[in-house]
Design a protein around this nucleic acid. Structure first.
Lengths: 173, 173
DNA sequence: TTGTTAATTAGCATGACTTGCAAATTAGAT
DNA sequence: ATCTAATTTGCAAGTCATGCTAATTAACAA
């Protein structure tokens, strides 16, 4: 049983925006469609690149703006995996993420396969949210190759894992 | 029973550096002492500020450099809480972190109060490491005030929680 | 103590990612 | 068609971290 919970459909979002008296600009509608059912955990930049193909004049600033609004409205999740840029996840279901430290791939992890956490309460904290990120090697990197990623990737690749950014750029092509 | 696992003592680190034929500069030794038993989860900048008082000429670049080395050597942990700058944690014990979304405080959470996770394996991933960050309100913010942090702090404070940076600067004074 | 040298530091430039700002544009109402 | 407030653009600026290199210096040897 796989539960897929994606962001509202573009049509539904149109309604939400109407209700909030927000303008339905073509830029916003384009992003609605690009995000719908999008499981790639895109960054603002990667969405920008895709959006640009359909709407050459669109601004990266607008991408950030709109994504920020959608996040505030609870229509998508911001995911910070501690590496490069913020990821945007239209999957609003209760799930976590697995990051392959070898190829940089990001996969959703069904929260049910991880026991529900309820810690910290003993220490007097009011825990409202728990972020979990799994690190390791994905299926492909684990079986296929022993090489993959020659450079330092053990852990702490220099504080900032710009590795990720590089990998993204490579993967784009 | 509270298990405290801190970084090696300055004296021990001196030995480690000697063994690795690394120079024992006063800058490094100062950082050894500043990090020892440090439970404040400092950023590079905050360490810089403290270090500067004892060694006015020290460079922020050196702080980053040394912290990076210590992390590579497994002497301290890099902690990315998804807000502002990277945190440095000399506590190498198996623990996680609680972040107060109201005041920005960071507290260690004993991993034993959270069930050990072993998820993702079902999906064919080789999980090597799991990062968990608890969000909520700390004791003080929860009881004392209903106000605290007037500005937007609900969640997604604009992708990048520079809030944290501001709070740090305030707290320094 | 002095000299030698490779490691380290300081300082500035640069880079990645994100936001602030103000002028120009435009969706939606009249 | 007009009006106006919301939105988009484009660029400047900010934060955090790293690259680079000249200057400095710890550690070793004579």
């Amino acid at each position: 049983m796989v539960i897929v919970v994606s962001m509202r459909s573009p049509t539904e979002l149109v309604q939400v925006f109407r209700d909030k008296q927000m303008k339905l600009t073509p830029q916003r509608q384009l992003l609605f469609s690009l995000l719908h059912d999008n499981k790639s955990h895109p960054t603002a930049e990667s969405l920008f690149d895709v959006a640009r193909k359909q709407m050459p004049g669109i601004s990266l600033r607008t991408i950030y703006q709109t994504l920020g609004e959608l996040a505030e409205m609870g229509e998508l999740q911001l995911v910070d995996l501690g590496n490069g840029a913020t990821r945007f996840d239209p999957n609003m279901g209760d799930h976590q993420h697995f990051v392959c430290d070898s190829c940089g791939a990001i996969h959703d992890v069904d929260i049910t396969s991880a026991p529900r956490l309820r810690a910290g309460s003993g220490e007097g904290f009011a825990v409202e949210e728990i972020g979990v990120v799994f690190h390791g090697r994905c299926n492909r990197c684990n079986t296929n190759h022993g090489e993959q990623d020659s450079s330092s990737n053990k852990r702490s690749p220099g504080l900032q894992a710009k590795k990720q950014s590089k990998l993204n750029q490579i993967n784009k092509q």
